[in-house]
C-alpha cells in the first residue's frame, strides 16, 4: 500500500473477516453506515476474507474477526469487533463526527458492547 492512494481518498480502510458470517455481514454494514455518515466521498473500503486467503492472517498480523485496519491516513490503526459501537469506531479511527450527526455520539443508539 503506497502513501498516495490512486483513488485520492483520505481514508483507506481494510476490513478483515473470516467467512461471510452474520457477524462479518454486520461489521460490513456498520462500517458502510459509519463511513457514509462521517466520511462521505473520502473513503475506500477493502474487505479481505481470510477464509479465502488464509496466508494473509499471518502476513498481516490478524488474530480476530472482524478486524478493521486504517491504512490511510498513517500511522495505521486497528480495531477489533463488529463495529457496533460507533463511538469507539470514531475514536479509534480518529474521525471527528460529522457536524450534522453530532447527536450520534451523545445518543448512544447502540447497546453497550460489554456483556
Amino acid at each position: 500500500m503506497t502513501a498516495t492512494d490512486p483513488a485520492g481518498v483520505t481514508y483507506d480502510l481494510r476490513l478483515y473477516i473470516a467467512g461471510l458470517t452474520p457477524r462479518s455481514l454486520l461489521a460490513i454494514a456498520n462500517l458502510k453506515r459509519i463511513c457514509e455518515t462521517h466520511l462521505a466521498g473520502e473513503y475506500r473500503i477493502e474487505v479481505v476474507d481470510l477464509k479465502q486467503e488464509p496466508g494473509r492472517a499471518r502476513r498481516d498480523q490478524i488474530v480476530a474477526s472482524p478486524t478493521l485496519v486504517r491504512q490511510l491516513p498513517g500511522p495505521s490503526r486497528r480495531l477489533i469487533g463488529d463495529l457496533s459501537n460507533t463511538e469507539r469506531v470514531l475514536i479509534g479511527l480518529e474521525i471527528a463526527p460529522h457536524p450534522s450527526v453530532q447527536e450520534v455520539t451523545t445518543h448512544a443508539d447502540e447497546p453497550p458492547v460489554r456483556p
Partner: peptide, 18 residues
C-alpha cells in the same frame, strides 16, 4: 493493545486459520 477496547463482538477465527 488498543486503548479503546473492542467495537463489538468478535471471534479468533483468523488465529485458527493462521
Amino acid at each position: 493493545r488498543t486503548e479503546i477496547g473492542e467495537t463489538g463482538e468478535f471471534d479468533l477465527e483468523p488465529l485458527f486459520l493462521r
